[in-house]
Nucleic acid binder design. Structure first.
Lengths: 112, 112
DNA sequence: AACGTTTATCGTCGATATACGATAGAATGT
DNA sequence: ACATTCTATCGTATATCGACGATAAACGTT
């Protein structure tokens, strides 16, 4: 599929060779962005950030979704590394992983 | 689904009423995050940022995906508002919407 | 041991994402 | 007019998301 540069018209595109910035972080960024790519997960993240400490099943009360659905979102967030869950007796306390959050911010801010 | 606060054990969670930060932007953030929630789209965005100008079918050459697939990703990015496409003769030049990018950065940076 | 509470997982369903090839549309050049 | 090039769209197949209810698993309490 790759071939000649065509005439190029010089109208708007200027195809001087550009070296892509390290693609290695594309996956990381996509993964973290994916974690907050759903309104419910954004709310959960904000909720957890709001309380510096972690929260438990109250998330279910705050988010207007079924408990199982919230649990799934929490799982996705956990898999992204953005949040961490710690078992505390019968309940589980979640809290933000500040490092991952920082990394997300850094990667997004680095889009330039 | 909302009911009593239970005993609460005071172990790790501290359920002082917390007012959620404006939920209104949750959708916006989710939508923009979604746009960059795929490695290919991250690469495209970075590519477009790299060249301050816009690019055309070269994106297809840079991204190792079929032309139709790239076109779909471009459509998603366009729908998110992160990029804009401008017809230039037979080809289409894409460029970053700096405002939207700024908004994404702002929303992500605002996670605190 | 039995119960209640809390959370995770399972099974299901519809909707959507993602990938591709094939095709259609638009614009230019011969 | 015709061929060429570039891009978008269609059609299709597969995988995953997102939602729910139902159930299981873990823990504390009685």
């Amino acid at each position: 599929m790759a071939k000649k540069k065509t005439s190029q018209k010089e109208k708007c595109c200027d195809p001087s060779d550009v070296t892509l910035p390290g693609d290695d972080t594309a996956e990381d960024l996509a993964k973290l962005a994916w974690a907050v790519a759903h309104p419910a997960r954004v709310r959960i993240v904000r909720l957890l950030i709001g309380r510096k400490a972690c929260v438990c099943g109250e998330i279910v009360d705050e988010i207007t979704l079924a408990q199982s659905t919230v649990s799934q979102h929490l799982k996705i967030l956990k898999e992204s590394g953005l949040i961490q869950g710690e078992v505390d007796g019968p309940r589980v306390c979640y809290c933000i992983n500040r490092d991952k959050l920082k990394m997300l911010k850094k990667l997004i801010a680095g889009l330039k």
